[in-house]
Design a protein around this nucleic acid. Structure first.
Lengths: 218, 218
DNA sequence: CACGAACCGTACCGTACGGTACCGAATGAG
DNA sequence: CTCATTCGGTACCGTACGGTACGGTTCGTG
């Protein structure tokens, strides 16, 4: 392989990264000092620098490590019934919400966003391709399956996905990033998952499959 | 007044805050040092501490100052026609997008989010109530006007607003915060404003006013 | 047992930043 | 003219953190 560098982290390194993540979750970026990580993980700073190069390398490794944990999980490839599609959409939305409201995800996003303004932006790009990529891909395959089954009607899959995402998440992600308590947010989310799927199907459901035909006004 | 503290900043202080903002926009939080602000604004650090207390006070003042610039702009209170409502919704969405994609807004959100993880979270709360509050209020009055005019049908205004927001913004705000180039984002936004308003009216337009009745499925 | 590699713990260094103190210049009042 | 207040410029201090070097220990290998 041309890039075997991050195929996997050694068990020891994974443990260190895990400790670094939990340190980041409680205390934010300012609490994530190299000395603190070394102390919490019972390793030496020298090893940290040997393994990850420098502090930014450690941060990048944390993101890569966390991203490596997401299960990509391909939904069945066959035809879907209406109820199956609806159920799959609902679980997708719920999973999405669970991920976004997770403490580790929030902390990592805060970290990447916090230093995105500077010249770097390296972490932000990592976050975008490693984090958003897979989950978006999973949604796209689901939407495609719905279309192939004649249940959904859209021309641009990305557009449909964006709509679903917006309906499901709205501004809650940013609000959580700004500090809204996760319980408040999660409660708000819970009541919205059903409405989001419902609205999405009203917007993109194939005619005569979900309701009477809709007329696109000029 | 019980809180005349931030009724206004003196012209000198406003100039300093302006300079601090532009310093934050280029270079991120790490570039926003007290010495840097003092140098850029041709004032002394001592004056900074006299006016704003400490560094956090300066950051909070920057947010308050920027928030004080938003025009709240009340839309007419009379009956609305369909076209007027549609136009108002469209301009609202466009304004919202302009605000969110503005460099200053992005930098300030990055700043607040970046230090939201730590114990503080003070800036995040400030951002939420000073930034999101007014714009949401404006949308709510517009939606209420639409309902009073018999053009919109919803029971929970907040829910409707969240839907509109999600349709308009989706995940683009977070992606911009993570570093997606503003031009890319703005282009994506432009094509979505119309679709968002369209979809919103399909979802919340009063029956027989925009299209044939919709059936809410179980 | 002997040797070497990996690694932990710690001590150390340079720097950069938040915050404070001091001094001189300008401005306005009497 | 003189005094007082305000503010800019600079020098200074303490601290905290990133990064490096070194001694001691464990563990695997021949």
């Amino acid at each position: 392989m041309s890039k075997p560098e991050q195929d996997q982290f050694s068990p020891r390194q994974s443990a260190v990264l895990e400790e670094a993540l939990s340190l980041l979750v409680e205390g934010g970026e300012k609490a994530l000092t190299t000395a603190g990580v070394a102390r919490a993980a019972n390793c030496s700073k020298e090893s940290l620098y040997k393994w990850f190069g420098d502090r930014d390398g450690l941060l990048a490794a944390m993101i890569a490590y966390q991203a490596s944990k997401v299960r990509t999980y391909e939904p069945a490839g066959g035809k879907l019934t209406r109820e199956e599609l609806r159920a799959h959409l609902l679980t997708f939305v719920r999973d999405l919400v669970d991920v976004l409201s997770g403490e580790v995800s929030l902390a990592l996003n805060r970290l990447s966003i916090g230093q995105a303004g500077a010249g770097g932006g390296k972490l932000g790009r990592l976050m975008l391709e490693r984090g958003r990529g897979p989950i978006g891909k999973r949604a796209m395959t689901l939407l495609d399956a719905g279309r192939r089954s004649g249940l959904l009607d859209f021309s641009d899959g990305g557009e449909a996905y964006q709509t679903l995402y917006g309906l499901a998440v709205s501004d809650l992600h940013v609000r959580m990033l700004l500090g809204v308590s996760p319980e408040t947010a999660r409660k708000e989310f819970g009541s919205r998952a059903d409405r989001a799927v419902d609205a999405f199907l009203r917007l993109y459901g194939a005619a005569n499959k979900w309701e009477e035909p809709r007329i696109r006004h000029a």
